[in-house]
Design a protein around this nucleic acid. Sequence first.
RNA 1: GAGCCGGUAGCUCAGUCGGCAGAGCAACGGACUUUUAAUCCGUGGGUCGCGGGUUCGACUCCCGCCCGGCUCACCA
Length: 568
Amino acid sequence: MERSRLEKLQRLKEKNLAYPHKFQVSYEIGQIRSKYEKPTDRKEVSVKGIVKRISKLEDGYIVRISSKAGIEMLAMCNEELKTGEEYILKGNIGRYEGKLCLFSAKPVEDDNPLEIENLKAEYDLDPNFEEISLAGRLITLRSMGKAIFGHLQDASGKIQIYIKKDIVGEEAFKDFEELVDTGDIIGVRGKLFRTNTGELTVEVESFNLLTKSLHPMPEKWHGVKDVEVRYRQRYLDLIANEEAKKIFLLRSSVVGELRNFLNREGFLEVETPILQHVASGANAKPFITYHNYLEQNLYLRIAPELYLKRLVVGGFNKVYEIGKNFRNEGVDTTHNPEFTMLEFYVAYWDYKDLMDFTERLISHVLLSTVGTLKINYREKELDFTPPYKRYAYFDLLYEKTGKEKEFFLKDLEGLRKLAKDLGVPNADSLTHAKLIDKVFDVLVEDELWGPCFVLDFPKILSPLAKTHRQDADLVERFELFVAGKELANAYTELNDPLEQRERFLEQLREKEMGDEEAMQMDEDFITALEYGMPPTAGEGIGIDRLVMILANVDSIREVILFPALRRF
RNA sequence: GAGCCGGUAGCUCAGUCGGCAGAGCAACGGACUUUUAAUCCGUGGGUCGCGGGUUCGACUCCCGCCCGGCUCACCA
């Protein structure tokens, strides 16, 4: 804690001004901005302006340009402009932190450019001295002597405040100067106006310090870069780094739109146990915990699958759950020990119905969050316009190796040799199923860039999927691949309890042969199947990975608010 | 778990060959009533991740440990 701030807090306490219980706000910051700032639809325009200030970003420059009369806006530009020079800039009109901004701006010759005033008149409305009260964290302060400017911020946006000695009075002005720091949370009451440069601003008539920050804020220009601070103290990341905040707002709207879509399609949202007696439904190592009263070990679920299918047995024909799964495995850029999955099940559908449905679901999420089906990921385009390409599992392997399905399923030693030649680690000790999986991984997965379905997996990889109607070696299963990563996994569900028991037994044999991730037998689930589960299809979608793709980030930690880290 | 890279002021980062620990922002004092990465003048601020070792002398070289990043292995 910083000593000067503690001393200020002490004085606030003496004046009985510290930590008030309530401050009435008339708007959220983002609300008042959207009331007076119209959406821009990215129209291409040319604007005339004088360059006032240039700031370098990682990629290009952000430029403040001004009209002759001093009205200002921003421009994002890749070319280096000269301060003080007048340019005509052509670009797409948008907003950056609420301010009008010309994106992809390029200097051009144009005999009929707009004035900044024209754009402002169109998109930025006159607040007409509306009386409002707002609160937020004070993130910048610019003292001019007898007047002070600053910005208040919350997750919805930021807004400028203007504190004038004449207006707030001698004593309040002195209090502000002596007791308020950047980082404090303050409430203001006053009139909305626009400054000479055109920025929406609260002319403060009175203010209250609501909460003192006892630590200085991260640096305003560079933000917080240290990932240890960003992940362990995510609140600082959210305050200081606009990009980080945007990712989590995006994540929230993705999850919201998934719910909207599924609810509209007649699905029922349910919650199933996270503490389970049997860790099954996926191939993974579980976390083990202990329940004192029950006097037994429980597992944190590795998947909700077997419980959701029990609900289909119970007559809930369309169910879904969005929730955490827990897997006691490595941590890296695509794996966090707890991660969020959407799983849904539909009675009387098969996996082909699910492919069509997946295309509709993804389309809905993309259009309602990022607003387009074509996005850039890692410098390459991803086009989610349906239909996605569909490839049969063994066709992909045949293309790469010239070998047919029989080779992979029957010639274990030949397969083992192929795996070794491909450099698959521990090829000598892997089980048959693992070998196929690894070989597919090495040969094919990275190349599945555009969204595509891989379908008809070998049965030995899929203990819960129904045998293929045309080929007893296969199951009716598909995975959706995007950017070389598995994004969704789905199949026609195995609903024959006798066959399901055999498949579990096969898994137990795999476990004995050294596959630690082979599935556990779930007798209670088989009992449920014995009562009869209708023909059903089910699917799981990794929410974290979906958000990674939409946010164009390559680490799962960027889309999880508090990712798993070692205790410091 | 292995290999490589990193940890220096509240934040972002420099620190040469082993020779007094640096800048910008933030903070503190002062000027400034439409500024906006405000500007101008001045001041203070360090367990150089932790612990050993080498050396007259270590942020710097060596060893061990902690934390993180990337790559790999396991996994979605």
